[in-house]
Simulated scan of single mutants.
Amino acid sequence: METPDTSQLEIRVHEQLRSCSPIFLALADPVRQDIIMMLTKHEKLNVAQIVERSPMSRSAISHHLKILRQANLISSNKVATEIFYSLEIESAVSQLKDFIGTTEQIIELKTPDEAE
């Protein structure tokens, strides 16, 4: 049996991979992973509260928060003079699920049926 043309799916998965790259890069760093874990335990934290829970400096934490924000993994909300950060991963999870779904479709199309 001939394998159906997967070129359109491959183009789509390539585009999805590119759009997911900031998420992968943000999640690849252990410090950012720690920040994500902190925010899973607390509804919101400001920079000082995150620094208290980390061995990193305030400027380093701010840098990591910026990367997480750019990847749309966290959101920030200013209250008076403080900025509070909270986990906002629904969009990123949706992007990753779409990427995985397309990848699975390609694998299914390229994998010969075992029954044949």
Rank of each mutant, 00 (worst) to 15 (best):
P112K: 08
S76W: 00
L45S: 07
A115G: 02
H64W: 10
Q16L: 14
I107P: 01
R18H: 06
K41V: 00
E10Q: 14
E90Y: 10
V47E: 08
P22K: 00
I61V: 15
I67G: 01
E52T: 04
K97W: 11
A115F: 14
L39P: 03
I23Q: 04
L9I: 13
S7C: 09
V93K: 12
Q70P: 03
A115W: 11
N77P: 02
C20K: 08
S94I: 10
I67H: 13
S54E: 03
R58S: 15
E90M: 09
S86E: 02
I89M: 13
L68R: 03
I11V: 15
A48S: 15
C20F: 10
S91W: 10
D113Y: 04
E82V: 02
E43Q: 08
V79P: 06
E108Q: 14
L73A: 01
I74N: 03
Q33D: 01
E108G: 02
H64C: 09
Q95S: 14
K44E: 03
V13D: 00
S19W: 06
S91T: 14
D98V: 13
A28V: 00
V79D: 07
L9T: 11
M1F: 09
A80Y: 07
E2T: 08
L17N: 11
Q8T: 14
R12N: 11
H42G: 05
E88A: 14
E2A: 11
T111A: 02
R58D: 13
E114Q: 01
L96K: 07
L27I: 03
K66C: 10
E15C: 06
Q105E: 12
L65R: 10
L9Y: 11
M1S: 10
P22A: 07
I100M: 12
I83R: 05
S59V: 13
P4I: 06
E104L: 15
V13N: 12
L73D: 07
T81H: 04
S76V: 01
S59I: 10
E116K: 12
E108A: 15
I100S: 12
A71S: 01
E116F: 09
T40C: 05
